[in-house]
Design a protein around this nucleic acid. Structure first.
Length: 479
DNA sequence: ATGTGC
């Protein structure tokens, strides 16, 4: 969208009675029609496209409140902001007091990023690339991974996350876990957000994953998933903050790998269950919110709020293990091809999660936590650079940052008949992407996404993040 | 996001 058109949109919002001003690179919108209503900061690079639908969804989110107590106290939108399917835009950060909104996270609970460096340089990597691809193609795309485990270790995972799972698995490993280096995994727990271990409970997990006896064959763990999720080899192209890079253990010219995935069907199950629960818990006799975004109120039912957060944590724990196992598959195959190559974890973080902050909660949907000193990982599309950054804890943006470039064109727009599907038009020139289905390459092509550079620059200028390293893609796997 | 739907 051109700036003029964007301006017209904000003028239209003003006409609706919304107080709208432009201050220091962000549109500041007072979104609720009341004096104490929340203000939304919408950070956009100059001349940047944004969909009206996404802004309408943000305005809708601002209006969520519970008649028995609970309201939205502030919102912001990151520059990769785009419309979401479930009525909540991707790139929404919402601060709530005395309530939580299950729909604000949605189904992709603890979708997030994981970054590893490796000891390999580009030449050594390229020499083994074909063998590695042959092995990984089977692991990632054909379903041959083996993460069979006991119901007890699944329970430990759901209730205690990675700490629970590693201690349950290390003395009696099964499946691919027999080849895991548990000492390494435990040493790396402090490089996972919240140690990858949140307070969950197996009672919220899909029952099929928790049989009374015998082994669990779960077909979700160690899988990439669809959409923008990927596993990718990259090379560290440029260090933008050498001191921070040293702390992260990342060196120029190194081959690295990055993982973007979430809680798969577990998050879908838990997310859907709790959107329905929140609807059922809405006070009888009162009109439904037209947005159908139902909050859970602390004053109305504190146990239900606690149970929801526990359920979200249960799915989050599963996502942490999913990304850890995707990385383990990578390490195990790299050992097969290159011998004993170290591939240490830099960081693993969620960008789809509810967390306590101040005297309320922050729900980020497609936005990274970026508290002061926290690592932030922002992926580009499969043809463009990804970044490691450091959070600066900007209060104006609720210590948050974007989670990617943001979609510019829908999957349908990319794949429909008549669309130019040449490599040049897709922006795929020089990109090696391994997919099971050709349509994924088209739907997820670089030109389906907005440019990453202005998104990073704008957030840097706004004082949200400091870039540490730029990573260029070499080889992408997409399911 | 989801072995799904435009």
């Amino acid at each position: 969208m051109q700036p003029k058109k964007l301006l017209r949109l904000f003028k239209a919002l003003q006409k609706k009675g919304l107080d709208t001003t432009y201050q220091n690179g962000a549109y500041r919108v007072a979104l609720a029609n009341r004096a104490d209503g929340p203000v939304a900061e919408v950070l956009l690079p100059p001349d940047f496209p944004v969909e009206v639908k996404a802004l309408k969804q943000l305005a809708q989110l601002a209006e969520v409140h519970h008649p028995n107590g609970g309201k939205v106290t502030a919102l912001c939108a990151t520059p990769d902001f785009h419309p979401g399917d479930a009525g909540v835009a991707i790139g929404s950060v919402v601060q709530t007091k005395d309530m939580v909104i299950p729909a604000a996270v949605g189904s992709d609970i603890n979708c997030g990023m994981r970054l590893h460096t490796t000891e390999l340089n580009l030449d050594r990597f390229l020499a083994g690339k074909d063998r590695l691809v042959a092995l990984l193609r089977g692991d990632y795309l054909l379903g041959s991974r083996d993460v069979t485990q006991t119901a007890a270790s699944m329970q430990a995972l759901f209730s205690e996350g990675l700490i629970g799972w590693t201690s349950a698995m290390r003395d009696n490993p099964s499946g691919m876990a027999t080849r895991c280096d548990f000492h390494q995994l435990e040493c790396e727990l402090d490089r996972v957000f919240a140690n990858g271990s949140m307070a969950g409970d197996p009672r919220w997990a899909p029952p099929a994953l928790l049989p009374d006896a015998g082994l669990v064959r779960d077909d979700g763990l160690g899988t990439i998933g669809g959409g923008n999720h990927f596993v990718e080899f990259q090379v560290v192209e440029e260090l933008l903050d050498t001191r921070a890079a040293y702390r992260a253990g990342i060196k120029q010219g190194q081959v690295a790998f990055m993982i973007h995935s979430g809680s798969r069907h577990v998050g879908k199950f838990i997310g859907k269950h709790w959107r329905m629960r929140a609807e059922a818990a809405w006070p009888k006799g009162l009109p439904y919110p037209t947005s159908r975004l139902f909050p859970l109120s602390q004053a109305d039912n504190p146990d239900l709020v606690a149970a929801y957060l526990e359920a979200e944590a249960t799915a989050a724990n599963y996502a942490f293990l999913n990304r850890m196992l995707l990385a383990e598959i990578m390490r195990q195959r790299m050992r097969q091809v290159f011998g004993e190559v170290a591939a240490p974890l830099v960081y693993d973080l969620p960008h789809n999660i509810t967390l306590p902050r101040g005297d309320g909660w922050i729900t980020r949907k497609g936005a990274c936590p970026a508290e002061s000193g926290q690592w932030v990982i922002i992926p580009g599309s499969m043809g463009t650079a990804s970044y490691l950054l450091e959070g600066l804890g900007s209060e104006r943006f609720h210590a948050s940052a974007s989670h990617g470039a943001g979609r510019a064109r829908s999957r349908f727009a990319m794949s429909r008949g008549g669309a130019d599907k040449s490599e040049a038009a897709l922006g795929l020139t020089g990109v090696t992407c391994i997919t099971l289905r050709e349509e994924r390459r088209i739907e997820e092509a670089p030109n389906a996404y907005k440019p990453i550079q202005p998104i990073i620059k704008t957030q840097q200028a706004a004082g949200m993040v400091r870039p540490v390293a730029k990573l260029r893609p070499i080889l992408t796997f997409k399911a």
